[in-house]
């Protein structure tokens, strides 16, 4: 790969200590991610995928090894990272627009400028809502939105402040199949436009192959990377792409690896 990695995960392990018992959650992880790359991490449930996410964002400290983002070692919560979870965690007292604008009230330099340039920021947020098809729902409250709409708003909130790194922890996991596939397209369009670096945690292999440039497979606990697969399918990918033999082959290959780790 070209150039120094934007996110460098180097020999990272994490041991949970609970009373006398020690659990090794993830072991000797090595992942290099280039700036602007979209990677996915898949694996059986309980393999430490979410732990990996917390380690990269500095919400958990590593027990061994190091993580750097943009050349800087991660110590304590990384600032300005975008995050989206399976649970949309929208604030029920804010309408969609105000929910999406929340990061602007916290992350510099937007926080400083927000009051003075409110109009420009609102336009920016509205433009983003429009690209995900929520323009007409800007003044609606979360409980007035469907699950898919809430997740669109959640994704908007995670990228409104133009983070260089976006962490997605099964953001589409709780949605029905049709909505989920629709949101893959939305996510891809956003990524192609903004070109942030993205790490997607998922257990849906088709989702991983659809969205990512590279897919990492994790073993069951303690989580290790047992396979890295480049997805050389041109973009934009569409739902049609997912029915092509090449796409199917990659999904199959990943699935076989996951099967073998589940049985072992």
């Amino acid at each position: 790969m070209q150039g120094p990695a934007f996110v460098k995960i180097d020999g990272v392990s994490l041991t949970y200590r609970q009373a006398e018992e020690e659990t090794l959650a993830v072991q000797d992880l090595n992942i290099d991610i280039q700036e602007g790359e979209f990677v996915a991490v898949v694996g059986p449930s309980g393999c430490g995928k979410s732990t990996l996410m917390k380690l990269v964002t500095g919400l958990l400290d590593t027990s061994a090894g190091s993580i750097t983002i943009g050349g800087k070692p991660v110590k304590g919560p990384v600032q300005g990272v975008g995050m989206a979870f399976q649970n949309s965690t929208l604030l029920p007292w804010r309408n969609t627009l105000d929910n999406v604008m929340l990061p602007l009230e916290i992350v510099e330099p937007h926080k400083r400028r927000l009051r003075r340039e409110k109009k420009a920021y609102i336009d920016q947020a509205m433009a983003l809502l429009k690209t995900v098809g929520l323009a007409d729902f800007a003044d609606k409250f979360p409980w007035q939105l469907s699950g898919g709409m809430q997740q669109r708003a959640n994704v908007c909130r995670s990228i409104i402040h133009e983070p260089r790194l976006l962490m997605l922890d099964e953001p589409f996991g709780a949605l029905d199949a049709f909505t989920r596939e629709e949101l893959w397209g939305v996510m891809q369009a956003l990524w192609m436009e903004k070109r942030f670096t993205a790490i997607l945690i998922t257990h849906d292999l088709r989702e991983a192959v659809y969205l990512a440039d590279r897919v990492f497979v994790m073993s069951k606990r303690p989580g290790r990377i047992i396979m890295s697969k480049a997805v050389n399918i041109p973009r934009p990918r569409s739902l049609e792409t997912t029915f092509e033999p090449h796409f199917g082959n990659i999904v199959h290959e990943l699935r076989e690896h996951i099967h073998s780790v589940r049985e072992s």
Binding site: K54, M83, I106, V107
Partner: peptide
């Protein structure tokens, strides 16, 4: 919700925020 707290912490929000 812990997830919500994580979202804010990773944005760099202080405890007061």
């Amino acid at each position: 919700e812990p997830e919500l707290r994580d979202v804010l912490r990773s944005l760099g929000a202080s405890r007061t925020e």
